[in-house]
Write a protein that binds this DNA or RNA. Structure first.
Length: 487
RNA sequence: GGGGGUGUAGCUCAGUCGGUAGAGCAGCGGCCUUUUAAGCCGUGGGUCGAGGGUUCGAAUCCCUCCGCUCCCA
């Protein structure tokens, strides 16, 4: 590194060390594509000139001539540098470059004896010095901490990382297009909320000085989006960050990206159909196929997703409960004890059943599966089933053993909603830090009348994990949360 | 919070039974005009995560702490 600083100092003495005059007129990846079918003779007959800018990634120096690999945002191209073409001065300058330097080259394309498309450099410019060495050219960067902390280095050397974030952008674009095409309006609602609502989770707390008030980073946009439904925007969606002050794991980051959409005059069944369609087209748009491979497992997003109720799922994965009464709190409590899950006071049959589901079924759901009929007890914002008010018209979608989406027919009865908030407040007073607050303005909004509506929340990061075949959420977030670096 | 793994050169990693700290890549010097993980010769580079202990002697054994990581709660 010392040597690189000395080289930079020399560049500064000799003139412009960070020139800004070089303009490129081609990209490496474009050239590869354009010349894919041209052999050596074709390139000689019809010379293609190109000016490329990019990073010097590797070099093979053979005395009076050298090969180098240039990487830009589109891909890589091999460069041939001969003393004959460049002259003594520029060739000497090339030999003085370091891996990682940002350079500009111009020349004509040709094919080498080995058939590789290459650019015969006729001139060369150093555009920016790399003062720090790149990681090892073959093994790349392996230490996960460094990869996340210095994502810029990871992106330089890890092809898979670049690909992952391209898939991410493609999936989001596909979903946005899909919703816009169906007449949805994209909106932005508050990230800082006086009452954090829309989910059961522990919020981050902050303080607004001028107003001298406590504000919470949102855990979900749900209640604001439904206020917009009341307002007459009948199809809305938002793709943005949620914040939850909870543990960090391969599936959880304190801030994560959530898609939520709401559609008036629809119910949870149509919401399931739309969920399925959006995921399918995101896979097609990014991977070109509906049959994907996730962590050694084949998943088929093309077939209609399976649908079963919570109770059905629990029965089929727990033979001992096949004929049991799944609304008997005592029986469910015994099962939980067998599973080693401590039963907290206040848990009714619904909460107990969902705990059993999470413990025994969730990770088993590899192929896409909608689970429906969530107990009302654990669904404080969902509409009760008309025939069976103990359960709600709600679903969650599981793929590869992970929850990907959650949706329901919205509860639009203000009296019922007020009662549900009330029982959440009781749970909070009993010590449940994740329980909801009572949001009286939201009740007021419902009192103006909200049409029957279906809504869905879909975890974007988890969808990207699936599409990009990544085992950890930190692989799909550019700058995942880390402890501050030690001095 | 509990358990496992791990921390050695810029990067990727070896390091045996406790006995002078190693390789490859990257760097530096030299040779080399069709290489593509180029090759060959030479060469510099270390707070072995930190602190303590055992020992004639510790990267290695013991203790404490810290970081990272995976699994579980």
């Amino acid at each position: 590194m010392q040597v690189r600083w000395e080289k930079l100092a020399r560049w500064r003495r000799e003139g412009q060390a960070y020139p800004n005059g070089f303009r490129r007129d081609a990209l490496a990846g474009d050239m590869q594509r354009r010349c894919a079918d041209m052999d050596a003779a074709a390139l000689e007959q019809e010379p293609i000139l190109a000016r490329l800018g990019g990073r010097l990634m590797s070099r093979r120096i053979m005395g009076k001539a050298s090969f180098a690999d240039l990487q830009d945002g589109s891909g890589r191209l091999q460069i041939f540098l001969g003393r004959e073409n460049l002259g003594e001065g520029l060739y000497g300058m090339f030999r003085d470059l370091d891996l990682g330097d940002i350079i500009g080259v111009e020349g004509a394309l040709f094919r080498t004896k080995a058939g590789e498309l290459s650019l015969r450099a006729s001139s060369l410019h150093l555009l920016a010095k790399a003062l720090r060495p790149l990681p090892e050219k073959w093994h790349g960067l392996n230490d996960p901490e460094t990869r996340f902390r210095q994502r810029y280095v990871d992106l330089i050397v890890t092809e898979q990382a670049r690909r992952t974030f391209q898939i991410r952008a493609g999936a989001i674009a596909s979903i946005r297009r899909g919703l816009l095409d169906h007449g949805f309006l994209e909106v932005e609602t508050p990230m800082m909320q006086p009452i954090p609502g829309g989910a059961t989770a522990r919020p981050f707390v902050t303080h607004h000085h001028a107003l001298d008030m406590t504000l919470y980073l949102r855990i979900a946009p749900e209640l604001y989006l439904k206020r917009l439904i009341v307002g007459g925007f009948e199809k809305v969606f938002e793709i943005n960050r949620n914040f939850r002050n909870e543990g960090i794991s391969t599936r959880h980051n304190p801030e994560f990206t959530m898609l939520e959409w709401y559609e008036a005059y629809a119910d949870y069944r149509q919401a399931m159909d739309r969920t399925e369609a959006l995921i399918r087209s995101a896979a097609l748009a990014t991977l070109g196929t509906e049959r994907i491979r996730y962590q050694e497992q084949d998943l088929d997003l093309g077939r209609p997703f399976a649908r079963m109720t919570v109770a059905e799922a629990v029965r089929s994965h727990n033979p001992d409960l096949r004929d049991a009464n799944l609304r008997d709190p005592l029986l469910l409590g015994e099962k939980l004890r067998d599973l080693g899950v401590p039963v907290r006071t206040g848990w009714g049959w619904g909460k107990r059943l969902v705990e059993i589901f999470e413990k025994t079924v969730e990770t088993q759901l590899q192929q896409p599966t909608f689970i429906t009929e969530y107990p009302t007890e654990v669904s404080p914002l969902a509409r009760c089933n008309d025939l069976e008010p103990e359960v709600t018209d709600r679903f969650e979608l599981f793929i590869a053993g992970r929850e990907l989406a959650n949706g329901f027919s919205e509860l639009n009865d203000p009296e019922d909603q007020a009662r549900r908030f009330q029982s959440q407040v009781l749970a909070k007073e009993a010590g449940d830090e994740e329980a909801m607050f009572f949001d009286s303005d939201y009740i007021r909004a419902l009192e103006y009348g909200m049409p029957p509506t279906a809504g869905v929340g879909l975890g974007i990061d988890r969808l990207v994990m699936l599409l990009a075949d990544q085992p950890s959420i930190r692989e799909v977030i550019l700058f995942p949360h880390l402890r501050p670096e030690q001095p």
